[in-house]
Design a protein around this nucleic acid. Structure first.
Lengths: 265, 265
DNA sequence: CAGCCGGTAATAGTCATATTATATTACCTC
DNA sequence: GAGGTAATATAATATGACTATTACCGGCTG
């Protein structure tokens, strides 16, 4: 069979198997383009370019990064697509008000994380999770399709494995929360994936449930309880159960941080 | 004074006054680039290109849209930045799993809206608002800076004006909810703006509080109650108050739709 | 026959240059 | 000084060439 594109609506689209779903964002390969976008994006996040003002003009940036105009423009398009800037002929590339920056974007969050994970930012992430995920779980409980349930159960089974590295556990955990998003039946909820992923990557960087068997067990049980609640259609219980799981994670971070601070003295 | 760029961190950045904040997304001018991005983005949302499969190869798209390769590539970069596709040498431009699509992106939502506002989608939007906005309001009540309060009050005052068009009222309403996002002190919450904007544009398209004086009054009072709760630091009350406002909006849509359906018969 | 290895070719990535469009600024007329 | 018009800076678009990456194929080797 010839290599087949699938853009003819008439021909039944034949989706080839996805090339392995998740993989955490940390390890993504970086082309020169991405690197520069990341650099400028990070600088924007740092506040080096004041909103309402202009970015340096094209020639200057080209000189700075030693790249062709083509690449520079594509980088700008990327930043524009994420809501950071807007370019107009004769005006230059203007930095937009931060309200319009797509913080929910996976890349943007990743840049923000690499910028440093102050408590402040972790708090913001957690606040969003605390409001969105319970809602998603409640919706899942409302709809609870058998396929979703069994998928969630499988996720829990994966999390329960005892041979996890931090990395592999983080992936399993992420899969679970993504599955919740899907089970909610709300595409927007499912789209919060990047937020969760970032939060998990961040929080598991220095401590993970797999470091401590009892923590691991508690985490798995917590997740299992969520599925139970969803399966029996108890919206309220599902929401509370997932909130509990989030809180366990937050506590682990707090504890670890305190320990680390203590050791530093 | 010479035209001044502000990219030197050393020199105190002098933000020029924002060129008038909001303006609803509907009216944005469209360059050829944006048009094509919108076209392809819409087609992606429609499901014309199966996830995991390839987009049509560059030459074909260039032929289709009658544009230069430069523009085509920038469009692809835009779509890539929004999580729709990923291009690799020798492989082509592959459509990513919809989980990764940035639904929270203002453009993406706008495309989705223009695609048609089925009840299903409005429901999704509302579910997200119902979970995020109360959380934001609660946080605002926790922090309640005087500046935020007075800004919110001003928003309410603007909404209360009796000389509103649907458009101008929608903008005032949007300003209010943006202000709530800001007042939450959480940049991620503030970033949900695009979702709200889309929801408002959508919901006011066919009916608006300004169409009916008593509806208008109820809406304004509802918003005022939110500010009261925030000011006195009652998180719970603030959350409930904003939920009420959202519900009023949802009801208006339902009623209008039913009426319209009735008339069609 | 299976599996490795290297060459080939398809495809996007990058580059350089030229032309065009558009908004701002400055000037010029009235 | 108001209003219009030309000059100019800046990004937008176009074009064509070259480069880099890697999937695929076919041959070699065990």
């Amino acid at each position: 069979m010839k290599a087949e594109t699938n853009y003819r609506p008439t021909r039944a689209a034949m989706p080839r198997p996805m090339p392995r779903l998740s993989r955490l964002a940390v390890e993504r390969a970086k082309s020169s383009h991405d690197q520069i976008a990341a650099t400028l994006g990070t600088e924007l996040l740092k506040g080096l370019y004041a909103p309402g003002g202009n970015m340096p003009p094209e020639p200057e940036l080209i000189a700075r990064f030693q790249i062709s105009r083509t690449v520079m423009r594509e980088v700008m398009k990327t930043l524009a697509a994420k809501g950071f800037v807007i370019s107009k002929t004769r005006v230059g590339t203007r930095v937009r008000d931060p309200v319009y920056w797509n913080y929910f974007d996976a890349d943007v969050l990743a840049w923000r994380v690499r910028l440093g994970l102050d408590d402040e930012f972790m708090k913001s992430l957690t606040e969003v999770r605390r409001s969105l995920e319970p809602a998603a779980a409640a919706l899942a409980a409302q709809r609870r399709s058998p396929t979703d349930i069994s998928r969630l159960r499988e996720c829990v089974r994966q999390m329960a494995r005892t041979d996890h590295t931090r990395q592999s556990f983080a992936e399993a955990d992420l899969d679970f929360h993504l599955a919740i998003g899907s089970a909610s039946g709300n595409p927007l909820m499912r789209s919060m994936a990047s937020v969760i992923e970032t939060a998990l990557v961040a929080s598991f960087a220095h401590s993970s449930p797999v470091d401590d068997p009892s923590d691991h067990e508690a985490t798995v049980n917590g997740h299992s309880a969520i599925v139970d609640a969803i399966e029996s259609g108890e919206e309220q219980a599902a929401a509370e159960a997932i909130l509990k799981v989030i809180n366990i994670g937050v506590n682990r971070i707090d504890v670890t941080r305190k320990k680390q601070r203590g050791q530093k003295k």
